[in-house]
C-alpha cells in the first residue's frame, strides 16, 4: 500500500503541475533561461486584470455569457429532441445523424460551414460563434440524453397521463424531477465544451469575438507567457469550482482537443 501511495503521489504531482506552472508564471516577471526561481515576482498582471476596462475582464464576461447561452440552448434543445427521437423512431440508426457532427473536428466543420455564416452576415459576430458552437453541442446533448428516455420514464409519463395530467404536468412532475441531475450534468458539460473551444471560435469569430481561449492564444503568439498563464488560470478556475461542487459535471468528452 505504501508504494501505491508513492506512485500515486507522483501522478498527483503531475496533475497539479499545470496549475502550479500557470500560477507561478502569472506572478513572475523577467523569467529568462536559465533562471528557475532566481528572478523577480510581481502582482502587476493580477492588478492589470482587476483594473477597469481590462481586455481580459471583458473576455471573461464574454466567455461566461457565450458558454451560458450555448449550454442552455443545447441542453434544452437536446433534451426534447432526444425525447422525440427515442419515442418516435424505432431505429437507432437515426442517431448516426447526431454522431456525424460529433466526430468531425470542430475546426474542419467550421471551415466548410463558414460560407453560410458569411452569407447570413454572422461571421465575425457573437451570434455566429454562438450558432457554430451550438451546432456541435446540440448533437452532443442529443447523444447524452438519448439513453435517459427508457421504458421506466415512458411508463411514468403514461401514468401521469392516466392520472389526469396534461403535457405540462408530465414535464414538471414526471420528467424534470427524474432528469434534474442529468440536465445539470449535460448543462455543465456543454458549458465546458463551449468554454474550452478555440479553433472553431477563432475561425468563425475571425478574432472579433475575443473569448478567453482566443486571448490565451493571442498572448502565446505575442510571446507574453505571463498574461497567457493568467488567462489560462481564468479558464481553469470555473471547472475547478465544478470539481468541488460535483465532479460528474467534468466528464465531458474532450471536444476541442
Amino acid at each position: 500500500m505504501r508504494w501505491q501511495r508513492l506512485l500515486f503521489s507522483i501522478v498527483a504531482i503531475c496533475f497539479v503541475i499545470p496549475l502550479a506552472v500557470l500560477a507561478y508564471l502569472s506572478l513572475s516577471a523577467n523569467w529568462y533561461f536559465p533562471a528557475l526561481w532566481s528572478h523577480s515576482f510581481t502582482l502587476e498582471h493580477w492588478h492589470w486584470l482587476l483594473r477597469d476596462g481590462s481586455p481580459l475582464t471583458f473576455s471573461l464576461l464574454l466567455s461566461v455569457g457565450l458558454s451560458l447561452s450555448v449550454s442552455v440552448a443545447a441542453t434544452a434543445l437536446g433534451f426534447f429532441v432526444s425525447r422525440l427521437l427515442a419515442y418516435h423512431t424505432t431505429s437507432t440508426y437515426w442517431l448516426l445523424g447526431a454522431y456525424f457532427p460529433y466526430v468531425i473536428a470542430p475546426v474542419v466543420f467550421a471551415v466548410m460551414l463558414n460560407v453560410y455564416l458569411l452569407r447570413l452576415g454572422l461571421t465575425g459576430t457573437l451570434g455566429g460563434v454562438m450558432l457554430a458552437q451550438l451546432l456541435i453541442t446540440f448533437p452532443y446533448a442529443i447523444l447524452f440524453f438519448y439513453g435517459f428516455w427508457n421504458e421506466r420514464i415512458r411508463n411514468l409519463e403514461h401514468l401521469v397521463r392516466t392520472l389526469g395530467g396534461n403535457f405540462r404536468t408530465v414535464v414538471t412532475q414526471a420528467i424534470l424531477p427524474s432528469a434534474r441531475g442529468l440536465i445539470a450534468v449535460c448543462f455543465f458539460q456543454t458549458y465546458l465544451i463551449s468554454w474550452f473551444e478555440y479553433g472553431l471560435t477563432q475561425f468563425i469569430g475571425v478574432g472579433k469575438v475575443p473569448t478567453l481561449t482566443i486571448m490565451v492564444f493571442r498572448y502565446i503568439s505575442e510571446a507574453n507567457p505571463h498574461l497567457a498563464a493568467l488567462a489560462g488560470l481564468l479558464l481553469i478556475l470555473p471547472p475547478l469550482g465544478l470539481l468541488v461542487v460535483n465532479r460528474r459535471f467534468l466528464l465531458h468528452k474532450a471536444w476541442s482537443i
Binding site: F15, V16, I17, P18, L19, V21, L22, W195, F196, Y198, T213, V216, F217, I220, P225, A228, A229, G232, L235, I236, P239, L240, L242, L243, R247, L250, L251, H252, A254, S256, I257
Partner: peptide, 15 residues
C-alpha cells in the same frame, strides 16, 4: 483524477 479534466487543451499545450 478529475483535476486534468479542468484544463482546456489550449492551456495544456501552453503548459
Amino acid at each position: 483524477l478529475f483535476l486534468p479534466l479542468t484544463v482546456p487543451p489550449l492551456v495544456a499545450a501552453f503548459v
